[in-house]
Write a protein that binds this DNA or RNA. Structure first.
Lengths: 218, 218
DNA sequence: TCCTGTGAAATTCTTCACAGCC
DNA sequence: GGCTGTGAAGAATTTCACAGGA
C-alpha cells in the first residue's frame, strides 16, 4: 500500500501555519509566500512548501498562496471542516479553565460534558454547562456522540478514566496527567504536561550556559 | 567545538522518564530496567538507553538502574536540582489555573508573580499570591530574579508582553498564545496551544480512518 | 523575474545487534 | 543469564538547489 506516512511534526506545523494565516487574513493580507508563512511560524520556507506538498499543490508559482484558500485547505486536512464534540473529565482548576476556554470553539471544538467525582464540584456550572458526576459519563458520551476525551484528573485516577472513556466509545484522548496511559493501540493519545515544558526551558537555560562556556574555551 | 547536540525529543523523554521513576519510587520499586522505563513511557528500551547515554553511564550491566539515583541524575540534567522562579502574565482562566497548579512546585517551579491589566482582576488573590498590575512587571522580575515567563494573555498582546519580559531580564518563555513570538535568538521560547493538540487528534481520527479504508481496498 | 513544487543530498534521529560487565 | 552501553546500520526528516510555470 502506498499511503505515505505524514510526520507528526508536519501536522503540528500545519496547525501553526493555520493560525498565522488566520492572523494574516484579519490584517487583510490576501496573498502570502512560503517565506511569509515561515517567518510567522518560526520555520524555513522550504519546510513550509514540503509540508504542504504532502497534501497537494495549493500555490501559484511566482505568486504565492491565497491566504483564505490555503487556510481552508489546511483546516480540511486537519479535520476542522466539521465540529467535534469533546468531554472533560476532572473539573478542578485546569479542567474548569479548559471548559471555559474560548479558543476551542473558534477552532470547531465543542465541550459537551464536564465530569467530576467531588460532590462539592458536581452540580456547579461552568459557563452554561453543568458539571456531572462521572457515573453519567457513558450515557452522555453515547448521547452526544463525543469522540474526544480530555483527562484532567489526578495521576492516580488517569489510567482508570482513560479506560472508561475508551470503553464508552471515545477514540482520541488528550491527557493532562503526568503519567503515560496504557491503552489499546488504535486509541489516539497525546500528552500535555506543563511542568514538562518548563523543564525543557530549564534544560536549555542551564545547557545553553554550558555551551557558551565551552565555546569560549576554544 | 565538540559539544554534541542533544535532541529536544531526548529532553522531553527524560522528563517523562523522570515522572515514571517518581511513580515507581512511590511504589517501592528500587531497581528498574530500561525495558521497564520504556514500558512506562511509551518508547523503546534502546531509546531509553541512548537518551541516557548522552549524559553518562547511570546503570549497572546485568542489573538495571537504581530508581531514585537515576531520577536524581535526570533531574540534575534537566536543571531541577535548584528552584526556578517564574512569573505569569495574564490572569484569565488559564493564567489563574496555572498559578494555582500544584504540579509546578513539586518539580521545583515557584510562581513569584501574576500580572494582568484588567482592574477587575488586579488585586485578587490566587492562593496566597496577589495579582499585580502589569506596570509592576519589571520591578518584581528584578527583585525576585525571575528567569521564566509564562504568557497567558490574548494573542493581540502576546508579542508586546514577550518583548517586555525579555527586556526585564527573563531568559525563557512559555507562550500559551496561538501566535509565534518574534524575539532575539538567545531567548528560549516554547509554545503550548491546546487547540493545536486537539487538531493533532482530529487529523489522526480522520486520517486513521482513511488509511484503514485504503488498506482494505488492497 | 518571482516563487512554487520537488528530486537529491545532507542531516538528524532511531533501531539493531552485540560486546562487556555484573 | 541478564541487562547496560554503544558503534554501525537504517529510517525519517530537513535542507538544498533548481526546474517549471505565472
Amino acid at each position: 500500500m502506498k499511503t505515505l506516512k505524514i510526520p507528526e511534526a508536519t501536522i503540528m506545523r500545519l496547525a501553526v501555519y493555520s493560525r498565522y494565516l488566520e492572523h494574516a487574513e484579519k490584517q487583510g493580507i490576501t496573498t502570502v509566500s512560503s517565506a511569509a508563512i515561515a517567518d510567522g511560524s518560526g520555520v524555513s520556507p522550504a519546510q513550509v512548501r514540503k509540508d504542504l506538498a504532502y497534501f497537494g499543490e495549493f500555490g501559484t508559482r511566482g505568486v504565492g498562496y491565497r491566504t483564505g484558500e490555503l487556510n481552508s485547505h489546511i483546516r480540511r486536512i486537519l479535520g476542522l471542516n466539521r465540529c467535534w464534540s469533546a468531554v472533560i473529565v476532572g473539573a478542578g482548576k485546569l479542567g474548569s479553565a479548559l471548559a471555559l476556554y474560548e479558543g476551542f470553539l473558534s477552532r470547531g471544538f465543542r465541550i459537551v460534558g464536564v465530569f467530576d467525582v467531588d460532590p462539592g464540584i458536581v452540580g456547579k456550572y461552568l459557563g452554561d454547562i453543568e458539571v456531572l458526576h462521572v457515573s453519567q459519563l457513558e450515557e452522555l458520551i453515547a448521547r452526544e456522540k463525543a469522540e474526544i476525551g480530555i483527562i484532567t484528573v489526578p495521576a492516580s485516577a488517569a489510567q482508570e478514566v482513560g479506560e472508561r472513556l475508551v470503553k464508552a466509545g471515545v477514540r482520541a484522548l488528550l491527557n493532562f496527567s503526568p503519567l503515560v496511559l496504557n491503552l489499546p493501540e488504535d486509541v489516539i493519545v497525546r500528552n500535555v504536561d506543563f511542568s514538562l515544558y518548563l523543564e525543557v526551558l530549564t534544560f536549555n537555560l542551564v545547557f545553553g550556559k554550558i555551551k557558551k562556556e565551552v565555546a569560549e574555551e576554544e
